[in-house]
Design a protein around this nucleic acid. Structure first.
Lengths: 171, 171
DNA sequence: GCAAATTAATGATTTATTCAAG
DNA sequence: CTTGAATAAATCATTAATTTGC
C-alpha cells in the first residue's frame, strides 16, 4: 500500500506533524522572518523528521505570517490564546535591510539564499525542547520519504531523537 | 579620482549604458520574464560591459515590467511606440507553472535559481546583434569594476566584442 | 467500505508595494 | 528623483480532507 510511489518526483513538500509543531512553536516564540542561518539550522533539524529543504522553511514562515495576519482581520471568534507577535512591540517596519529569496527545485535545482545579519538586536532563543512525541508516524514517514527523495541525514541518524538544542537569534 | 574605492564592497549594481540598452532591447523585443538559461546567457553577455550578476538581470526585468505597467495606468502621455507584451496575446494568465527566485549577495553569497520550461510554446529569438557601439566608456568601466568586484569573464576576454548571437526562447 | 468527485488547506509562484542608495 | 533591491500581498496549483455514489 505504498503511500507514495518510490521513483516518483517530490511534487511538493508535505510537512510532518512534528515539523509543523516545531515551526509553529518557533512562530509562536516570535520568529517572523528567520535569517539565513536560522533557516538553515531549522531546516537541518527538521530534516530529522522527513524530507525538507530550506526553501520550505522560508515559504512556511512567509505563508504563516501572511495568513495569520489575514485571519486576524477577518471575522473570527476571539483569539483563544492570543499571539506574541514578536516584533509587534515598537519598531513597526523600521530599518529593515535584508536580503533573501529561494529558488525552485521542481526541475531538480539547487537553492541557495542569504539574509543579512541584523545589527546587534539579536537575542539567543532556546528551542527544540521537543523530546516529547517523536511518534511512530513521524518515524515511518522519514523512512519512506528519506528513500523517496534522497534526503540526507544532517545531524542525526534516522529517527530524529536526541537533537541538540538549537539556538536561534531572534531579531 | 577614484569613482569607487578599491577594496569597497559592491553596494548595488549600477548598470552601464550598454547594459541598459541591451536589456531594454530585449524587453522591447517582447521578453518579460526570462528563463533561467536566458538570464544566465544575458548576464554572461552583459558581463562584458561591467560587473553584473544574474539576479541583477532578474530584478531588472521584474522592475521594468512592473514599472512599465504602472506607468501605463498612471497619468502619462500616450505610449510612444506601444508594447509587445509577449504573453499579452490570448492566454491571459493561464496555466502558468513556473518557478524562480533569486538570492542576495550583499554578504557575498552565491545565487542560483531556476525556471521551469514552458510546454511547447517556445519560440527562438535572435538576440544580441549588438555589434554597434561598444563605447570606450563601457570599456573603461569594465576594467575598473572588473578589478573591483572580481568579475570573471564568462565568454569573452575583456572588451565584449565578438559575442556569438544569443538565442532566447520567448514564452 | 472504497474510490471517484468535490471542497478545504496550504505549499509555491507571481505581482505589487516599499525602502533606500546614488 | 530614479531605480536597484527587499518585502508583503495576491494568486496559482497541488495535496489532504471530506463527501458522495456505488
Amino acid at each position: 500500500m505504498e503511500a507514495v510511489p518510490v521513483g516518483a518526483k517530490c511534487e511538493r513538500w508535505n510537512p510532518t506533524a512534528e515539523q509543523v509543531k516545531v515551526l509553529t512553536n518557533l512562530f509562536r516564540s516570535g520568529l517572523r522572518t528567520p535569517t539565513t542561518h536560522q533557516i538553515q539550522m531549522i531546516s537541518a533539524h527538521l530534516g530529522a523528521f522527513g524530507k525538507i529543504e530550506s526553501k520550505n522553511v522560508f515559504y512556511w514562515f512567509q505563508n504563516h505570517k501572511a495568513r495569520e495576519r489575514h485571519n486576524k482581520k477577518r471575522r473570527r471568534g476571539p483569539p483563544d490564546d492570543d499571539d506574541e507577535d514578536g516584533t509587534a512591540a515598537g519598531d513597526h517596519r523600521k530599518s529593515r535591510t535584508r536580503c533573501f529569496r529561494v529558488g525552485c527545485s521542481k526541475g531538480k535545482q539547487e537553492v541557495y539564499w542569504q539574509r543579512k545579519e541584523i545589527r546587534g538586536e539579536t537575542e539567543t532563543l532556546e528551542l527544540f525542547p521537543l523530546k516529547s512525541s517523536i511518534s511512530e508516524e513521524a518515524d515511518k514517514v522519514i523512512t519512506v520519504r528519506g528513500e523517496l527523495c534522497g534526503r540526507r541525514a544532517l545531524y542525526l541518524d534516522a529517527a530524529g531523537r536526541d537533537l541538540p538544542p538549537l539556538d536561534l537569534r531572534l531579531s
